[in-house]
């Protein structure tokens, strides 16, 4: 009886040691896997945050959007940009620092903005922005992860996407109002006689997607209003100096009027 109990004890002790040994053996591989997974998780979080916060200036694929923001998925950004601005640390630190603090003034005249607000607002919480430190790091990881495609070492497969249809009736209705008050003075629509300052916007929902390669219809309409010079409709080259497109509108108004125009195809 006594002997059996002790043998059982020894057996259990040995079994526990074996288990600990096996777990110890695997720990290194587990650590590697965990590191990879966390790196991936950070990039994925970064992708979401980028699309929520940065896309509207830097483009949904980091291609840059006119005068709003420079390209990030870009060879020059990964090879020459650090030397250009005299940054001494690594590029990922440059990205994180830039994102955290934003930019009061642009380093290039193209992005000069209107001189009253920061060309890129600060994003870090402690600088008055909306993002936590780990979120800034995640976005930076995502931006840095463009390196391979930007340098052309990897080419990703492309698929044909169906156009997004922003069919929310409330937004469209609001957009129609914005259009009548702010755009109708220059633009006409088939059922809405308007001013002659700009081209008629009949069929713009379809035309927009073909205007600038790489820009979606939505992005093109936004750009037309925000950066009139980026693409000038034939016959308006001279007029734009005095009578350029554009109106002062809020982000919400722009969203709405874009949705409104996209419906008119």
């Amino acid at each position: 009886m006594e002997g059996r109990e002790r043998r059982r004890l020894t057996f259990l002790g040995l079994a526990l040691c074996c288990l600990l040994f096996i777990v110890g053996q695997q720990e290194e591989r587990r650590l590697e896997a965990a590191a990879a997974v966390q790196a991936g998780e950070a990039v994925v979080t970064g992708a979401r945050l980028y699309s929520e916060n940065c896309r509207k200036c830097h483009g949904s694929r980091g291609e840059g959007l006119g005068q709003l923001g420079p390209a990030l998925a870009d060879q020059h950004f990964f090879t020459g940009r650090m030397a250009e601005v005299g940054w001494l640390l690594d590029l990922d630190q440059y990205v994180a620092a830039t994102v955290a603090g934003g930019r009061m003034m642009a380093t290039r005249p193209l992005y000069a903005g209107n001189g009253t607000t920061a060309v890129m607002p600060p994003w870090a919480l402690d600088q008055g922005g909306p993002l936590r430190v780990d979120e800034i790091i995640a976005i930076s990881r995502f931006v840095m992860h463009w390196r391979a495609t930007a340098l052309g070492t990897i080419i990703l497969p492309v698929i044909d996407l169906p156009p997004a249809d922003r069919g929310d009736p409330a937004t469209i209705k609001a957009g129609g109002k914005v259009f009548s008050t702010l755009c109708l003075s220059c633009h006409a629509l088939p059922d809405l006689p308007g001013g002659q300052g700009g081209p008629t916007l009949a069929g713009i929902g379809v035309a927009a997607s073909g205007r600038t390669p790489g820009l979606s219809a939505t992005e093109y309409i936004r750009q037309s209003v925000l950066i009139p010079d980026a693409f000038v409709v034939e016959g308006y080259d001279e007029k734009t100096d005095t009578q350029g497109c554009g109106a002062l509108l809020s982000e919400v108004q722009l969203e709405a009027v874009t949705a409104f125009l996209l419906q008119r195809n």
């Binding site: 591989r29 587990r30 590697e32 896997a33 990879a36 991936g40 994925v44 069919g167």
Partner: peptide, 27 residues
């Protein structure tokens, strides 16, 4: 109750980092 079609959309991102590893530790 309405004639207009509405579109709803949601996006998620997925990654394939460390997918080759066999361990359960990978979330």
């Amino acid at each position: 109750d309405s004639t207009a079609a509405r579109t709803f959309e949601r996006t998620v991102y997925r990654h394939g980092f460390g997918e080759t590893s066999l361990l359960s530790g990978a979330k």
